[in-house]
Amino acid sequence: MKAKVLLSLILLCAGLVAPSARAGDAVPAAPAACELPPYLLATDSQLHKVAETVKAGKPLEILVIGSRSTTIPSSEDSSYPARMQAILKDKLPPAETVHVSVEIQSKKTAEEAAGTFVKLMEAKTPTLVIWQTGTVDAIRSIDPDDFRGAVTEGVAALQNAGADVVLMNLQYSPRTETMISAPPYLDNMRVVAQEHDVPLFDRFAMMRQWNDQGQFDLFSPSRGPELAKQVHDCIGRALAQFVIDAAHLGPGQQQN
């Protein structure tokens, strides 16, 4: 009996809250779990082409070049590229068309992936490429200097093809920390980003922040997709915010 009352109360509350949230925007406000200190989302580099495209009202084509950690097995719609698309659509002016496509370079090192970029960019002509890399190189312990060379080459190829570039680094994976050495790859991606004035989306630091603050337990051995969905949702949100900030498309900035 008690349970029934409780349940109906909850349903009632949900009924009251849900429409009000939906009325405002299609995406509910960011869950508290996604909170990040502002410095993790700050960048000096700018996304000029994204800014021009949005200001001109042209459709924004975004290509995510990633690997297996770009998606969640058997729930693509919850992966961070899909989440980013939803949030961007919501935050940019309603007339703006946003389309995010994903190119998975499974088990390819940065060098192998970079080799495909010229062709890839001929086939698609995105305004912005988000290149997520480093994990495969770290697993195979590729020479960090070679890795840096490959990332430099890849970024140059993407820029030459006329796209803005965002680099995204590895996932923070505490369970495999004793087996995969991430720091050299993180450092080298930071160097390339600095040298080429490309914004670096520090996925590693963000996930570590969430884990350290207890928002997510990334040690969890759970086989269910729930944790992965929540983490990808947060990454998608952070990424959307990051792109908006780096292109200076925020509410206060759009006028300038």
Binding site: S67, R68, S69, I72, P73, K107, T135, V136, I139, Q171, S173, R175, T176, M179, I180, L218, S220, P221, S222, R223, G224, P225, L227, A228, V231
Partner: peptide, 10 residues
């Protein structure tokens, strides 16, 4: 954990 299928490549 499906979040880390890639890292399991190790």
């Amino acid at each position: 954990n499906p979040l880390y299928t890639e890292e399991m490549g190790i």
